[in-house]
Design a protein around this nucleic acid. Structure first.
Lengths: 296, 296
DNA sequence: CCATTTATCTGACTTTAGTCAGATATTGTG
DNA sequence: CACAATATCTGACTAAAGTCAGATAAATGG
C-alpha cells in the first residue's frame, strides 16, 4: 500500500475531526449530555422499544434505563409498557420531545450551512460531490463478508429479495419452484456468504459443491442501493476462496440473459463461456473458471 | 442554500463519524485515556511548553498539569523549567515516550490501511483523491478573516513573508524602503485584515484611505500552501466591505508585472486597468473599481 | 524594592459515561 | 403450576473529563 495514501487518509481524518468535531457539537449546544441527545435522535417518529434502542446504540441496560428516565423527567419522552408483552417498554417522543429534536435538527442544519457558507458556488458543488464520493467509498470499504447459516433470518431475506428481483427482471417472471432452485438437497455442505454494511445485510452468494472438484455459484445478489461499490466482486472472490479451501478446482455457474451486469462481472473476473451443464429453464449463459492455488 | 447540499453534508458527517470514529480509536487501544494520548501527540519532536500545549488542545491549566504528571509518572515525558523564564515549564518526550508515540502512529497507520484494504486499486485512488478534495475545501471553508492591529505579531510576520516573496519574484528584487512602502504615515486610519486557518495566519491585506472617497489596497498576500482556496478572493471582498463601511466610493491598487495571478484575480473581481496614480517604481499595472452600495 | 502579572500547580469538586451484580415483573415451556 | 428465560430497573460502584478557587514561584514594570 502506498505510504502517501495512508498519509492522506490520516490527514483527512485529522481534518474532518477538526472540522466535523464542530459539526458534532450540534449534539451539544442545548445543554444536554451527548448520551441523552443520541437517544432522543434514535427514538423514531413512531417510538421504539428500549431493547432495540439499546442494541442500536450499544448501551448497557442500566445505563439506558437511567438515560431514558432523565429524558422522561424532562418531559421529552413517554415510557409505557407494551400491551402485547408487558415486560417490554415502549418509548415515544412527547410533543416537547419532538420539538426538541427539531431544534437539534435545526442546529445541525445551521452548522452544515455555515460550513458551506464560506465557499463560492463552485467550491460548494465540488465539496458536496467529494463528500458523496468519500461516503460511498468508505461504505464500500466497511463492507464485511462472512459465512452464515443458509436458514438464518438475513440469509432468507436476501434470497427472497433475490427471487423477487429475478421475477421482476426475467421475461415471463421467475418461479423458485421451477428449475431446481428450491428443495433439492446439496450433495455436500455448501457455503452461504452474506455481505454486511454496518450490520445490515446487503448482499449474498452461495457455493454448492457438485462433485469432488467442481462447485457451483448460486444466489449472487446485491441490494440495489449498494450496487456499484464492488460488493459482488468481493463476494465472488470470497466464494472462490471458499472453493479453494474446499479443494475445488473449478467453479461453474449459470445466468439469465437479462442479467447483463452479472455477465459482465463474471467475464471481468476471469470466467469463460461454457456449454449448458444443467436443465435450468432460466439459464441462458453458462460460465466456468479454473481456480488457481489458494493465495496467502 | 440548496437543501440537498446540507443533507449531503450531514450525511457525510454521519458516515465519517461512523467510519473514522473507528479511526480515532487509534488513540485508544493502548490502555491510555484519550486526554493523555492527545497530549502525547501534541508534544512535538522538540518538545513544547505547557502553555502552548494547553492552548492548542484547549485544556484547563489544572487539568493539563495533572495529565502531564501522569505521563511523567509513566516515564513518557520529562518536564523541566525553561532556563530563560523559570516560570515556564518545558515538556519533552523521553525515549519511552517517543516509542509510545510511534506505537500510536503504527496503530493509526494500520487503521488507515484497513480502511483502504477493502477497496480495489481504482477505488483506493478515487477515495484518496476525494478525501484530499474534501480536506482542501473544508479548510477553505474554515478560513476566518478579521481586522487586527497592523503591528501585531502575526501582521508583521505576514508582511515580512510578503516582502520576502516580492523580493524573490520581482526582477531585480524588492526593497521595502524604496517606493513608499515603509514609514509613510497614512492620512487616516486604515484597516489591516488577517485570514486565519485554524488560528494560523495564512493571508493578509491592508486598506489605506487616500482621500475622502478613495482607498488603496496594499499588502495582499496569501501563504503559498494555502493558495487556490479562494483566500485572496475573500480577503479582497472583505477589504471592499470595509471600504464601503468607511464611505469610500472607489478602490485603487497597483501591482507588478510578475504577479500574474494577482492581476487575473483583480480583473475577475471587477477591477479595470487605469493610469498610473503614484511613483511606485515596482508598479507596472494600476487597477480601479467603483464600489456599489453596501450589501446586506 | 514592591506590586502586579504570568505560568503553573494543588485541592476540592462535579458531571458524564459506563460497568456489574442482583432485584423485579412478565412471559414462555414442559 | 413450577421453572426457566426475557426485559427492564435499581443500587453501588469506577474512571475519565473537566471546572474553579486559591497557592506558589518567577518575571516585569514602575
Amino acid at each position: 500500500m502506498e505510504k502517501a495514501f495512508i498519509e492522506q487518509v490520516r490527514s483527512f481524518n485529522r481534518a474532518v475531526t477538526l472540522g466535523t468535531g464542530a459539526l458534532n457539537d450540534s449534539y451539544l449546544g442545548r445543554g444536554r449530555p451527548l448520551g441523552q441527545a443520541r437517544l432522543l435522535f434514535e427514538i423514531g417518529h413512531d417510538g421504539s422499544d428500549i431493547g432495540s434502542l439499546r442494541e442500536r446504540l450499544g448501551l448497557d441496560s442500566g445505563y439506558a434505563s437511567r438515560l431514558l428516565k432523565s429524558l422522561e423527567a424532562d418531559g421529552l419522552v413517554a415510557i409505557e409498557s407494551d400491551s402485547e408483552d408487558r415486560r417490554r417498554r415502549l418509548v415515544t417522543l412527547t410533543a416537547k420531545g419532538v420539538s426538541e429534536r427539531a431544534a437539534y435538527d435545526a442546529l445541525s442544519d445551521d452548522l452544515a450551512r455555515s460550513l458551506l457558507d464560506g465557499l463560492s458556488t463552485g467550491q460548494r458543488g465540488r465539496l458536496v460531490a467529494a463528500m458523496a464520493e468519500v461516503e460511498r467509498l468508505m461504505n464500500a470499504a466497511s463492507i464485511a463478508i462472512a459465512a452464515e447459516p443458509e436458514d438464518s433470518r438475513d440469509a432468507r431475506l436476501c434470497v427472497a429479495a433475490y427471487y423477487k428481483e429475478l421475477d421482476e427482471r426475467f421475461e415471463g417472471g421467475f418461479d423458485p419452484g421451477n428449475g431446481g432452485y428450491a428443495g433439492k438437497p446439496a450433495e455436500a455442505a455448501g457455503v452461504f456468504l452474506i455481505a454486511r454494511l454496518h450490520g445490515r445485510a446487503v448482499g449474498c452468494g452461495a457455493l454448492k459443491p457438485l462433485d469432488a472438484s467442481t462447485a457451483e455459484i448460486k444466489r449472487m445478489w446485491v441490494a440495489p442501493d449498494t450496487r456499484g461499490l464492488g460488493v459482488a466482486r468481493r463476494l465472488l472472490a470470497a466464494l472462490e476462496d471458499e472453493a479453494r479451501r474446499m479443494g475445488m478446482e473449478r467453479i461453474i455457474l449459470d445466468t439469465n440473459r437479462s442479467l447483463l451486469e452479472a455477465q459482465a462481472m463474471y467475464r471481468k473476473a476471469g470466467y469463460r463461456d461454457t456449454g449448458r451443464y444443467n436443465d435450468n429453464p432460466y439459464a441462458d449463459f453458462f460460465f466456468e473458471k479454473e481456480l488457481g492455488a489458494l493465495a496467502g
